[in-house]
Structures are given as C-alpha cells and as structure tokens.
Design a protein around this nucleic acid. Structure first.
Lengths: 333, 333
DNA sequence: CTGTTAGCGCCTTCAC
DNA sequence: GTGAAGGCGCTAACAG
C-alpha cells in the first residue's frame, strides 16, 4: 500500500520552501544556503521522495540516457564492451539503455527508433554497417553518436575501435613470418558479421601479397561457438588434410578447434597451428595459450563512455579513436 | 540540422485530426477508422515523427521500462539471463533498463533507487539477499518484483529460480553415489555470492548425511574464472593429496581445474573427479564433458519476463516458480 | 469513431 | 539565495 508517491511539491511543502528550491537541491545546481539544503534533505528523507525522471526529462528535454545497441549477448565479447561502458559512466548520472540487434541491421534500426523515443543524450552502437534509415536517424538525432569496434566506414560522429581488416592482415603476416604456408580458415555465418568478413579479407590479402591463397575454408551455420570450432575443424582437415595452420573467426571457435586437436591426437603447432581472434580469457587459460589478437573490448566501451561525458555535444567534425590491437604470440602458432 | 523535432501536435495538424487521435494511432489503442489511420501514418512518415516517451510516461504515469539488476557481467551466466529477459519481452513494448551491482548489496540499493526514478512497471533482480532499504523500496514500489535465481528467502512478490542449497546437496549425493569419498572444494570469494555459499552448504550437508566431511577446501580471491580454477586446484591437491573428487564453485573454475589436470597429467575421473555448476557451453565442449548442474539461466530470464507481461499488476500473494535444475552426468565425475 | 479539457511532475526563465 | 509563472509532449477521462 504505497502511500501516494510524494512529489517535489510535497517535499517543498514539508520543508517550507518552493518547488524550485527542492529541485535545485536534488540536482545540486544553483546556489543554496546550507541551512536550506539540510532542511530540504530532511524532508526528502522523511517522505522517501524519489524524483520522477520522466517529468525531469520532459521539462528539460534532456534525459540522462545513453542508448546502447550491441549485436549479440551470445558470448562474452559484448558484455565486456558493456562493462567498459558502465565503467566509463561510473560516477556520472548517465544510464545506459541497451538494445540487442542480433546482428540484424533492420532490427538495429527498429531498436534505434525506440531508443530515440527516450531522448537519449547519446547513442553508442557497435559497428558502422547501418541501413540508410539508421544512418539518417543517427545523423539527424543531433546527439552524440559513437560507433564502436571497427574503424572502416564513414563516421557519423565519433568512432572508437580499430581496423579489423588490418588485424586480419597482420594475423596472416604473423603466420607467414613463422613459416606457415598452407593455411585454412574456419568461419561462421558472416552474412551479418561484417567485422569477421573484414578480418577474413585482410587475411586473404596478406596471403595474396606473398603469392599464397587459402588452402580451404569452411563456415559453420549460425553464430560462433566452442562446439562450432570442434565440429568444423575436422571438416576443414577433410577438405585440405595437408594444411599447417588454421585461422578461426574468433577465439570461441579456435578453442573448439584446440579441443578437437586434443581429442584427435593432433600436435598443436607442430602438426597444425591455430590462430584466433579477440584474446578471450578462455583462450589464454587452455594448456597451450592461444595465439590470437587482443581486441581491447573493455577499453573500447570505456573510452566511448568517457568521451561522451567529456564532450556531451556533438562536435562539428568527426573523429576516429584508434584503440589498436595486439598480436598475442601464444603457443599455438 | 534536425528541423525542430515534430510533436504530436505537428502530426495532428498535418493530418487534420486532433492530437488524441494521433496518440491513439501511435499506441494502437482505441477504435480508429482505417482511413484516418492511414492519413495519420502518412503524416508521421512525412514528418519523421518520433514519439516522446518521457512525455508519455509522465502523462500516463506508467513507463514501459522493466528495471533489471544483475550482479555481474564478468562471465556469460548473467548475459544469458539477460538474453532470456529480452527473449521474453520480444514483441512487447517493454524495454529493460539494466544496472549491474557487482555483487554489492549497497550498490544494488543505489541502482534500485535510480531505476525507480524512471517509473518502471516492474523490477527484476537476481537474488533475494537485499539490504533492508532495498527490500522496503521493492515492496513499497507497488510494481511487480521478480527475484531471480534462488528460491530461498522470503519473496517480495514473484521468485523464479531453484534451490541452490538443494542443488549443492544433490551434487554431493551424485558424487557419493559414484563412490567418491574424499572430496575437496574449490571456491572463490563468496562473501558476496550468497548462492555459491548455499550450494557449498548443501554439499557439506550431503557429505554429513553420509558421515563424511570435506577433505579440504581452498578459496580464490576475487571473482571466479577459468584461470582461477587452474591456479587453485593444485593448492587443493597440496592441502589434500589423496582426494578423489573436487567440487568447484562453478563451471569456469572447474574447466580451469580440468586444464590443470591436462597439464599435470592427472587422469580425470580415474584419479580425480571434477564437478562444476551451471552447465556452461564451454564445460560441455571440452574433450571430457564436465559433470555439472544445468541451471536453466536463459529460461529463468525468459519466464520472469513472460510472467510480468502476463500479469503486469502485482498480485496479492507471493509466488515461487521453480525452474529446476538437472545433474549433467558428464564424463568427469 | 473523434474531440475537449485538464493535468502528469518537473525545470526554464525571469524577477526579486 | 529564493520564488512565481508557464510550459515541456503526451494521455486519461469524459463527451458527443
């Protein structure tokens, strides 16, 4: 039986001041006599007053929301980005409002439209591969827009990430430098995951620059997973038994490949090198730490959030923050 | 150059109807002549109108938010719960509003207070171990409250989960039934993770019922992780070299323990049985599928969301939905 | 099926 | 340092 929710007016009456004074105390803005402040705080406590942000948002036409659109919650990658965002927002009054697009551009557009209805002060979205309408909505929203993860493409406002194509290229260089020549690829359904495709293209380009090409490639249906790697590596080996290295779309799949090697008695690195992407904990925890690329996901989220706080208004010029990546030497390649 | 955002009034004017008619079209409520609807839709399109939910929330004193408080984003467990919630909410107009408490009851309370400022129509929180203030806020909010994961404790409204104590007990019974008698435990810092502690207590109780007790136990500092398991298992073995089974606080740690066995040449199950908790994919993907407990996390989230949609008003009586759990036989115990 | 009236709770602007 | 007036954009409740 919650006794009718107290409002600013109730607090003001109890404290014997006007509403605006209470509002100032609540928001910590404007000059307030210490004595008044204490009286108001007392009234707030006494009534258990909770401000109504919907009213505040309407009155000031500025919410404290940051719309966040991530493509997937199926592995730990994007939860880590999200953690970074929360970390970057800690201590600020801003609150993320999350949507998950399942790597679907149309769904991203839908989610964006519904997030915009909350008057967010910024939008963070993973990737730069949007529908035309999404791009227009982002651009016309007038609020800060941060596109995460990949630096290819034409920024709306701010981009935080690195070049996946280059990362793929460098992965290829790494393998070539270590003497691997017959290289296979294990991917997943990247109709939607453009970044995976960019890495793939980078890898192929690196091989081409050395006069090589992929010995074989296989693609799992559906999203990437550890079991996907376990299932697909034998298929790759069936298609090209003589490969000396396998590049996986990401660490999940690569760890699965490692497990297949364990079970099948394949000497990892000696008989078959394995290479992943992301630098997940699990990849570094297996008995032979995975050779892979560290993608600094947490940092990407954190920096995006910090940048928004530091400059809440959209600036006139676009900017790209390169968070870089790092080849993890590992023990598997 | 976003030309001043169009409002309901603008749409109404263009369509030649009243505001409330536009409102009805937007919300799909109330009877509207097909012709009128089309005219209004046309005007909405033409202007690129996006409804202002802050205004709507204020006017109807009912937002479409569901506040969600999860303890951690450090492993895949709670993102899976979150996926379940999104799944259960799909097609509904409701939008989760997420806060992460880092297993801190005071932080949970803070987050709750800030979520309540958005007038959520429901609150979903993981666990039932709250501060007194949190409990009071939940109770007095008057909205639906779903406490997830564990069924112990006194419900505010609805509980969706299972008994972790019983799951721990059954884990113990499982090991005893298979002849293991010298059982060790690898935990983490569960000052905060009450559910881990409940499982531990259940395990100890199962042993006690057979006249046994834990041969040894070790606890990692900080959160659980795969590497934590890799590091802690040798310590457990140092403390009690003759144990025949190790129970881990969860699958992350147990997988780490498995990797230690691989590296140290310990024959899993034959020399040392391993038992986890959660039923994560990674545990089932390793060469010897982990013996563990499936906790139906996705389902828990989905059911919580569906229940809220089915009954948006808090009923007079509390209810507990038991989502059960299941011992996964696996190959490690 | 559509419209009128009257706020929802707070914040901006301008006085004092 | 504090207050008064007005309105943000939308919707409930009633008419018609």
């Amino acid at each position: 039986m919650p006794p009718i929710k107290p409002t600013l007016t109730d607090v003001a009456r109890l404290a014997g001041v006007s509403e605006i004074t209470v509002s100032r105390v609540v928001r910590g803005k404007g000059p307030i006599a210490e004595e008044t402040r204490l009286r108001v705080r007392g009234a707030i406590e006494a009534l258990g007053y909770v401000p109504n942000r919907a009213a505040g948002t309407l009155a000031s036409s500025a919410s404290l929301f940051i719309g966040v659109i991530l493509p997937s919650m199926h592995n730990i990658v994007f939860p880590e980005v999200l953690r970074g965002i929360y970390e970057g927002l800690a201590g600020s009054p801003y609150q993320p409002l999350l949507g998950v697009s399942e790597y679907d551009r149309d769904k991203e557009q839908e989610i964006l439209a519904s997030l915009l209805a909350w008057q967010p002060m910024a939008i963070i979205t993973a990737g730069s591969d949007h529908t035309d309408v999404t791009r227009r909505l982002l651009s016309e929203s007038g609020v800060r827009v941060v596109e995460l993860m990949d630096t290819e493409g034409d920024p709306v406002d701010l981009v935080v990430g690195f070049s996946h194509r280059q990362a793929g290229y460098d992965s290829g260089r790494h393998l070539i430098a270590r003497g691997y020549r017959r290289i296979g690829y294990v991917g997943h359904d990247w109709a939607a995951d453009r970044r995976a495709r960019l890495r793939y293209e980078g890898l192929v380009a690196a091989l081409a620059d050395t006069g090589l090409s992929l010995a074989a490639e296989v693609h799992a249906d559906g999203p990437s997973s550890v079991t996907g790697g376990t299932e697909m590596l034998p298929r790759l080996l069936a298609a090209a038994p003589d490969i000396d290295a396998a590049v996986f779309v990401n660490d999940d799949m690569a760890v699965g490949g490692y497990f297949h090697c364990l079970a099948a008695g394949i000497a990892v690195k000696k008989d078959l090198a394995l290479f992943g992407f992301n630098g997940l904990d699990i990849g570094q925890a297996i008995p032979m730490p995975l050779s892979t690329v560290r993608s600094n996901r947490f940092e990407i989220g954190r920096i995006a959030a910090e940048r928004i706080i530091a400059e809440p208004k959209r600036p006139a010029v676009t900017e790209v923050v390169n968070t870089g990546y790092e080849i993890i030497e590992g023990a598997t390649a």
